[in-house]
């Protein structure tokens, strides 16, 4: 990847990447550690602090919403993909 256009693109992406990352880290330092819903309710001034993110999950990764319904809906979507893929043969 030595084309001038490619290098220019990578540099622009890197600059934007770093700018946004530094801004986000500064915002994180200002607001502190909390889940997104808790953060949102506090930002708009709602009491109760929203639904705090539950601990656990897998290495910090957690599902939002009902896990059983998540599995069912995802299964139906995957079935839909298989049918669409068989139909269209892209």
């Amino acid at each position: 990847m030595t084309e001038p256009g490619a290098i220019k693109g990578r540099l622009a992406f890197l600059a934007l990447f770093l700018l946004v990352l530094v801004t986000a880290l500064a915002a994180y330092q200002l607001s502190g550690e909390m889940g997104i819903e808790e953060r949102f309710t506090q930002a708009v001034g709602l009491e109760g602090g929203g639904d705090a993110e539950e601990g656990g999950g897998w290495f910090g990764f957690a599902l939002e919403g009902n896990p059983l319904l998540y599995g069912v809906v995802l299964g139906v979507l995957v079935l839909g993909i298989i049918l669409t893929f068989c139909y269209s043969r892209i």
Partner: peptide
């Protein structure tokens, strides 16, 4: 047909990833 199939893939992939809270900045997705 290609676009329809891609749209189906995108729907499933985006739905799957959208529900997963990542352990970054306190929990985001």
């Amino acid at each position: 047909r290609r676009k329809i199939t891609l749209a189906a893939f995108c729907t499933a992939a985006a739905f799957a990833i959208f529900q997963v809270s990542l352990p970054i900045f306190g929990g985001v997705h």
